[in-house]
Structure formats: C-alpha cells, structure tokens
Simulated assay, not measured.
Amino acid sequence: MSDPTTPQVPDVPQLPEVPQVPDVPQVPEVPPVAPPAAAYGAPATPYQSQPYAGAALKKSPILSILALIAGVIGVIGSPIAIIPFVGGFLGLLFPVAGIVLGFLGKKRETAAKGFWLTGIITGFIGVGLMIVSFVLWGLLFSLGSAYDYDNF
C-alpha cells in the first residue's frame, strides 16, 4: 500500500501539558444601591412609561388677531361711506366684527391683550366714522330738498 507517488503524511504532533488555571477569587457581596432619581422630564421607569413628548403647544390667539384685522380694515375701509347710506351699512360690517371679536378675545384669550384691545379701539373708531357718515348724508339730503330751484 505504499505507493511511491503519494506523499507521506507526517504524524500529528503532541500538545505540551497545559498548566492548571488557578481558582478565581470570589468578590465580596455588596448590598444593592437604589437607582438615582430620574432627571426632570425623564420617565420615572424607562421600561414602563411613554417617551417624553415635549412641552404642550400654545394655543394661537385667533379671535384677537381677527379682531385686530377686522378693526383695521373697518378704519381703512371708511371711505366707502362716500356711497350714500349703503356705504354706511357696508362700512359697519368690519368694525362691528372687530368689536365683537375683540370682546370675545378679551374673555377667552387674556394673554393677547394688544391684539384684542386694538381690535376693540379701531372697531369703535370705524363705527363712529360710519355714524358720522349717516348723519352727514342725512343732513345733506334733508337740506338739499329745502332748496327750490324754480325760484332762481
């Protein structure tokens, strides 16, 4: 069985003796320590609570902002009073809306004082301008009928 063409396999070497590992010393038992308190905003127990969601969103003072816009449009749109009587009625829409929304904002959104107060003030100015236009147009039409053009 020895074939001259097959290479010979060397014998497996023997491993040297492995020294004995010494015993590991035992660590003395330490009493358990309470975990540190959770930081502000952190969950009390990380495995049972929901993740921190952040601060609540502030509610936008929409009524107060609308009061401001309606009041300013009522004052700026007061030249519509040029149209006799109809302009006065149309010109009352935005100022009255500014007043109503301003008082609603005062009741519900106290933090937005600048917005609702400006809406109330400009709303009353717009209503005053429209009342003046009613009076002026009324006087103009009442005095205009007193003149008789046939007597010239």
Rank of each mutant, 00 (worst) to 15 (best):
M1I: 03
T5R: 00
T6N: 10
P7D: 09
Q8F: 07
V9Y: 11
D11E: 11
Q14A: 12
L15V: 09
E17Q: 14
V18A: 11
V18D: 03
V21P: 15
V21Y: 07
P22I: 04
D23V: 08
V24Q: 01
P25L: 12
P25A: 15
Q26N: 06
V27G: 08
P28F: 00
P28S: 02
P28M: 00
V30A: 15
P32C: 04
V33Q: 09
A34C: 00
A38V: 15
Y40Q: 14
P43N: 09
P43G: 09
A44T: 12
A44N: 09
A44W: 05
T45N: 13
T45C: 11
Y47G: 08
S49Y: 01
S49F: 01
Q50D: 12
Q50H: 04
Y52F: 09
A53L: 04
A56V: 12
K59A: 13
P61R: 03
I62W: 07
I62H: 05
I62S: 10
L63A: 02
S64C: 07
I65M: 11
L66W: 01
A67D: 02
A67S: 15
L68K: 00
L68N: 05
A70M: 07
A70Y: 09
I73W: 04
G74D: 14
V75D: 01
S78P: 12
S78H: 03
S78M: 09
P79H: 03
I82A: 06
I82Y: 06
P84S: 15
G87A: 10
G88T: 09
F89D: 04
L90D: 04
L90W: 03
L92E: 02
L93Q: 04
P95A: 14
V96M: 04
A97P: 00
I99V: 15
V100F: 14
V100M: 12
L101H: 02
L104A: 13
G105K: 01
G105T: 04
R108Q: 13
T110H: 12
K113C: 13
G114C: 07
W116A: 10
L117H: 10
T118M: 04
I120D: 00
I121D: 05
T122G: 08
G123S: 12
F124R: 10
I125Q: 03
I125F: 07
I125K: 06
G126H: 06
G126Q: 02
G126E: 08
G128R: 07
L129D: 02
I131R: 00
I131H: 03
F134D: 01
V135Y: 02
V135P: 05
W137R: 02
L139A: 12
L139P: 00
L140F: 10
S142A: 14
S142Q: 08
L143F: 13
G144V: 08
G144H: 09
S145V: 06
A146E: 15
A146T: 13
D150K: 07
D150Q: 08
F152I: 15
